[in-house]
Design a binder for these strands. Structure first.
Length: 1022
RNA sequence: GGGCGAUUAGCUCAGCUGGCUAGAGCGCCUGCUUUACACGCAGGAGGUCACAGGUUCAAGUCCUGUAUCGCCCACCA
């Protein structure tokens, strides 16, 4: 016989004890089945948290939701795997470490050797990874900790190289130009989300560009075209002037040439839809400022870059990395155009040059106008200087290129209504959505995914960082010789037999080592710079093997250099669902647990992450990585703002765990999870016992109150379960409250099971809440109290109580795992054998975490019992209402009678004891022809049952109450009558709806009659 | 600019295929040391479901428009 539950619920102790049980038994560590198959599996891979910082409340939500699913399925006997791990988060992590080193040591990244700096980041990662894993454990996450991965660990790194190699070999990785966000102050590239937009009070300068030959438009001689710009200094790199083909002036000006001021470059006037037509009255600010002529600077503006691509314009870069004007970084026509005016500008900072150029235009009378203009300008979030779009070479993945050898498996041609090939990477991700193999919950998010993929552009994957997967490519620029220089393309070379497999026909001096590297599995590609020079790229599949090390050594001896860039963080994230399982090896894990079942994440990374995982899962493994994508809400504060460090409105999950307990936190988070896109959580501060002041939310009290109630109800139950003997159970001896609570339990089981399977959280939890609190605690336990004192009734009540408690714990376990496990362990000690012999069994389990999920209780549903109890409850509420209304003290024992129709009378009399117990009534009697005692208070129930509480009359209160009731009834009756008088309603509405209205009218009439009768009696009696 | 969403009680939210006499928790009011729980028990007040039209026998629910708020994506000559 065990000790009872402690008087006070202490979350910390309970959490610790449960964690010990779970980890000692490795319950979260599934083995791939020895026989290789059969058991159904359920897999979730964690969205790996970034190692930049400890977890926040959003993580708590995200991981709680996953854990609910995993625990639910584990109890349903699935072989469940929840794969945990963390993400190296390239730029974000590198930045936080750089910041810390700068503030603590005053050093910059460039003060370190690469290896040394990476070591520093590694140290940060080790610290935060450990903290994050601890946090996840504290949150109760039932991850398979034995399989914890990190996106840059050896297993994942191998997958990254394998995937990269595969893409490279398939010709999907190429080198291309791209405008990046350049921070001239720190001289680094910034990701888009590191660019802060600030409203800047700037100017629009209107610059005149002289035409080479004047043009006559409608009798008017035009000497110049005027362009409007906010960044005049970029004009040095202009290579065209564009106008909208719909512009009236277009027919005279298109194809004409302009002499670019200062530079003297002759540039064409071209047509492009992108140009906004001028309109002084337009709502569109651009149209108001536009002259209809747009200077095109492909090297210094993203839009212009696109225009340049469309028209094959020259790209001239006039800036040095520090933001000064320079002829050294891609000013291709410098030698032809150089003149004194331009040379004067060289070396000037971009803003200095801006002034100088404006001044030049002013002097030459080419500055037509200057207008004030407020606009958003991207600034570096680090140095706060305006960012400069800067042209650079980057690695790309071709996402729309059909992959020939996948045509057989995935099909060929375009997906209907799109320009996406089925067997392109984009197609591989899009098709499963369209044919239903991939589903979003809520469904609306499928649209985000679909539009993104349909409009996808090639994926730039290189980043100029040190922290990340270094690109596994060695390259060298070499001279080459070829007779037919007009055919400079890889395809042509292949055709000419010059490249082939690249095994033995390399025509580059000293190419022997390439042969060897190819023999070792490397893949080689070429890119021709011009007619003499070619870049040779060698991709190495994996660096794990010693033999590859030798290849590398040879390559490096021969002058090849490894690319210094690293891969975009999302590249390794895209592989996460299978890199964690050991791909490219055909591991038992991969065979057993891939593809997974559900991915659970927030909507902001549907495009960045979800789509890419599907893409790479299909491409690398040949199947979608998961069939369901559950998108949960994002947590905001009470004002609807995102929780963030800078606003100081964040809530630390560890603080809540400390103050309210993990289960309370989980309860609150899941109860708030409906399919809305945001959840608001009012933030207030609280003082912890040790004096710390921290943010919290009153919302968490809901969870804490629930846990406290669960603890106490269980404590009470357990106190009454000593000596329980299932052999003493006899189904025939169950009373109506037993039948009722079992029926309610059975319904709750089916509701919870069904809605959990549909990824609902708030719904099953509120079913459980109602069942546990309102049915079980408020009614069943109260009714059971006296039975526990009765030796004859006790065994039945005990057995039902134990069964219901046992099942309630099982149902609640996915949501509040710790407290339920703790109580379950006690229940096992005090009442090890449970089950309702001949009615339902309760499968034994050493621990709740692996106990069987309730099922097959349908036979316990009992409409008769539910109907009767509902009536009894209504009667009790009516009596309680009178008591409260008439100020009858709670301890005053009442005498009550009731008048009703036969059926009701029988139910009430048959259960008089139940009414007496919970309404504080000493005598209760119902009858069809009872007369109201003169001094009785009366209340009329919905079914017109009249309840008389003796010796409690208060004429004034009575009249007021009945009068109010009468008014309400009359109003309601009128509505129903009007409905039924409407012929359209009677003929067109569904028959059951009409019948319902009819019943309702009868009920209302009866009630109203009764009320009126008593009302008139009251008046008659003075 | 494109897309997605929200607007229901003082607060945070349910209300799914139209049938509603619109619900829950918190907060508020009244009463209560009822031997599991005051993190509790019993009772109660509180809503022209953002606004304007429309469809329908019937609209919180469907359609159109307006307003306000929010998010994502693109962009900012």
């Amino acid at each position: 016989m065990g000790e009872q539950l402690s008087k006070v619920y202490e979350s910390k102790t309970i959490e610790q004890q449960a964690n010990e049980i779970w980890s000692a038994n490795l319950y979260f560590h599934p083995e791939p089945p020895a026989d290789g198959k059969d058991k159904k599996t359920y897999t979730i891979v964690i969205p790996p948290p970034n190692v930049t910082a400890p977890l926040h409340l959003g993580h708590a939500l995200n991981n709680t939701l996953q854990d609910v699913l995993i625990r639910f399925r584990r109890m349903q006997n699935y072989n469940t795997l929840w794969m945990p791990g963390t993400d190296h988060a390239g730029i974000a992590t590198q930045t936080v470490v750089e910041k810390r080193i700068l503030s603590e040591e005053g050093k910059r990244r460039t003060d370190f050797e690469r290896q040394e700096f990476v070591g520093r980041v590694q140290a940060w990662k080790d610290e935060y990874e450990a903290r994050i894993i601890d946090q996840l454990k504290a949150m109760g996450c039932s991850c398979d900790w034995e399989r914890t991965r990190f996106t840059m660990d050896e297993v994942c790194a191998k997958a990254v190289r394998a995937a990269f190699f595969k893409l490279f070999k398939d010709g999907l990785i190429y080198r291309g130009k791209r405008l990046v966000n350049w921070d001239p102050a720190t001289q680094t590239v910034l990701a888009d989300d590191e660019v802060e937009h600030e409203l800047v009070q700037g100017h629009f300068w209107y610059l005149r560009y002289p035409l080479v030959e004047p043009v006559n438009i409608g009798g008017e001689q035009i000497e110049c075209v005027t362009v409007a710009t906010t960044r005049p200094e970029t004009m040095l790199g202009d290579t065209a002037v564009a106008m909208n083909p719909a512009d009236k002036r277009a027919e005279y000006l298109l194809g004409k040439k302009v002499r670019l001021p200062i530079v003297g470059r002759i540039i064409p006037i071209i047509a492009d839809e992108h140009v906004v037509l001028p309109d002084a009255d337009s709502d569109d600010e651009k149209a108001r400022f536009s002259t209809g002529f747009l200077k095109v600077t492909p090297a210094h503006d993203p839009d212009d870059w696109e225009i340049g691509l469309r028209h094959g314009l020259e790209v001239i870069n006039v800036l040095a990395p520090d933001g000064s004007i320079s002829d050294k970084y891609g000013w291709t026509d410098w030698n032809e155009i150089r003149n004194e005016d331009v040379e004067n500008l060289i070396g000037m900072d971009r803003f200095e040059a801006r002034e100088a150029i404006i001044e030049w235009f002013r002097m030459q009378d080419l500055l037509e106008d200057v207008r004030e203009y407020a606009h958003e300008v991207g600034h570096s979030y680090r140095s706060h200087v305006p960012i400069e779009p800067y042209l650079s070479d980057q690695w790309y993945i071709a996402v729309k290129k059909p992959i020939e050898h996948l045509g057989k498996k995935f099909g060929e041609g375009l997906i209907e209504g799109t320009d996406v090939a089925v067997n392109s990477l984009a197609g591989l991700a899009l098709k499963p959505l369209l044919d239903g193999r991939l589903r979003f919950i809520p469904e609306r998010y499928a649209k985000t995914y679909q539009t993104w993929l349909e409009n996808l552009r090639d994926w730039p994957i290189s980043r100029q960082l040190w922290w990340g997967h270094q690109i596994p490519i060695w390259s060298q620029t070499l001279p080459f010789e070829m007779e037919d220089s007009s055919a400079l393309s890889i395809d042509k070379l292949v055709d000419a037999g010059m490249v082939g497999d690249l095994t033995d026909k390399i025509m580059i001096t000293g190419g022997e080592y390439l042969k060897e590297s190819i023999k070792q599995g490397c893949w080689v590609r070429m890119r021709f710079l011009d007619e003499q020079m070619v870049v040779i790229y060698v991709c190495i599949p994996t660096l794990a093997l010693d033999v590859k090390k030798e290849v590398i050594k040879e390559l490096e001896t021969a002058g090849f250099v490894r690319d210094t860039d690293v891969l975009d963080t999302w590249f390794s994230s895209a592989l996460w669902p299978f890199s964690t399982m050991g791909w490219p090896e055909d591991t038992p894990e991969l065979k057993t647990f891939y593809p997974g079942n559900v991915l659970c994440t927030a909507r902001d990374i549907i495009t960045l992450w979800v789509s890419r995982m599907v893409m790479m899962g299909q491409y690398c493994v040949g199947n979608v990585p998961f069939s369901n994508v559950y998108i949960h809400a994002m947590i905001q504060d009470g004002e609807g703002r995102r929780m963030s460090k800078s606003l100081g409105n964040g809530i630390d999950p560890l603080v809540i765990i400390e103050s309210h307990g993990t289960d309370a936190m989980r309860f609150t988070l899941t109860s708030m999870t409906t399919d809305t896109q945001d959840i608001r959580m009012p933030v207030v501060s609280m003082t912890l016992p040790d004096g710390r002041v921290e943010n919290t939310s009153p919302k968490f009290d809901i969870g804490r109150n629930f846990c406290n109630k669960l603890w106490n109800a269980s404590r009470f139950a357990l106190m009454n379960l000593e000596g329980l003997d299932p052999a003493e159970f006899d189904p025939g001896k169950m009373d109506i409250t037993d039948r009722w609570i079992l029926s309610r339990l059975a319904k709750t089981v089916s509701e919870v099971t069904e809605s959990l399977a549909q990824f609902k959280y708030s719904e099953p939890l509120s079913s459980l809440y109602r069942f546990f609190w309102n049915d079980f605690c408020d009614w069943y336990l109260e009714w059971a109290k006296p039975r526990m004192q009765n030796e004859r009734k006790k065994p039945i009540a005990q057995n039902v109580l134990a069964f219901v408690l046992d099942h309630t714990l099982r149902l609640l376990h996915p949501f509040v795992p710790f407290i339920t496990e703790g109580i379950f362990q006690k229940l096992n000690e005090i009442a090890p054998m449970r089950g309702l012999k001949g009615v339902a069994e309760s499968k034994e389990a050493k621990a709740l975490v692996i106990a069987q999920w309730p099922e097959g209780l349908e036979s316990l549903m009992d409409e008769d019992a539910e109907k009767q109890i509902m009536l009894i409850q209504a009667a009790i509420r009516t009596i309680r209402d009178i008591r409260s209304n008439r100020n009858l003290p709670p301890n005053k024992i009442l005498v009550v009678s009731a008048k009703s129709q036969q059926e009701t009378v029988e139910i009430l009399n048959g259960n008089a004891e139940l009414i007496q117990q919970l309404a504080g009534v000493k005598e209760f009697e119902a009858g069809t022809a009872l007369v109201k005692p003169a001094n009785a208070a009366i209340s009329i129930m919905d079914d017109a049952t009249e309840v008389y509480v003796h010796d409690a009359v208060d004429l004034r209160a009575e009249r007021a109450k009945l009068k109010k009731q009468k008014e309400q009834l009359e109003k309601a009756k009128k509505v129903v009558e009007a409905k039924l008088a409407n012929e359209n309603f009677v003929t067109k509405a569904k028959p059951e709806v009409v019948a319902q209205a009819g019943d309702r009218l009868t009920e209302l009439s009866e009630q109203l009659n009764t009320v009126e009768k008593h009302l008139s009696e009251l008046y008659n009696s003075g």
